[in-house]
Design a protein around this nucleic acid. Structure first.
Lengths: 138, 138
DNA sequence: CTCTCTGCAAAAGGTTTGCACGTCC
DNA sequence: GGACGTGCAAACCTTTTGCAGAGAG
């Protein structure tokens, strides 16, 4: 793994006030090391970390993803009940969900606008608006 | 349970070509018997059925909800990874998800329009567009 | 040195499944 | 009669947790 890759992950952690442990640095590097947006499941990240030789347990991947999520570094996205996806792109943006193979990708739409969004009922505030476009291949 | 309630459920089943077994009729009556839209979890429906004296096992509730879902009678909605909701309103419409208490309701918005929706990539078609407005109470 | 993080294994929670029996047409 | 539906319990899968030891500041 390149130094720059690791450094980017370290900076990312520091910005959120998270202690840069070996495991977190490794996972962060896998997530944002190349500067691209990524949609991962805990299982995928665990396998990637294992392949990369970072000794990280599955429980730690889960704990770490939750920590990242609470620190505002990733956003958790639920599309199919059985698995959670974590997105490194924190902006509100729509997703494609490929029902056939259970993959989640960004929908290429900078122009998507939602008109007539209901306002939050009294005493509540909108914390996010999730838009998932479900795709089916024949 | 009123006759009309049961009849509405029976018709609903017949329209989808599902065999009207005792259990299915009971569950259908609970779901659409009063003609209102409903958002239920398997657990909720199981308890309702039990309270109503319909001897239905939890596994059957799951199997039945899946059958209804595949027959196009209800739509499965996933908002939080741990539970699935089933909505008797099959039209594409936005939902409020109350993060504090894990409830799902219809968002009161007939005017919601999505502008600039990306078209489906080649070889795929859009099967649904899910819009979930997440609400947080203080 | 202290507080937080990690790893393991075990538990939890929701959902599915295998199989024998019952029921609908 | 034959295919399909049901019930139970066990299996399954993802995620969380308890606790002891390791590491960061």
């Amino acid at each position: 793994m390149h130094d720059q890759t690791i450094e980017r992950g370290t900076t990312w952690l520091a910005d959120a006030g998270l202690r840069p442990t070996r495991q977190r640095v490794a996972l962060a590097a896998l997530l944002v090391g190349d500067g691209m947006d990524r949609h991962v499941t805990a299982e995928w990240l665990f396998e990637a970390a294992t392949k990369a030789g970072a000794g990280v347990s599955l429980a730690t991947v889960y704990n770490t993803l939750r920590a990242f999520s609470e620190a505002g570094l990733v956003r958790e996205i639920t599309v199919d009940g059985s698995r959670s996806y974590f997105d490194t792109n924190m902006t509100d943006h729509p997703h494609f969900y490929w029902e056939n193979d259970g993959k989640l990708t960004d929908a290429p739409s900078e122009e998507l606008r939602i008109e007539g969004l209901p306002k939050a009922p009294d005493g509540a505030r909108i914390s996010a608006v999730d838009v998932v476009i479900r795709l089916r291949r024949d």
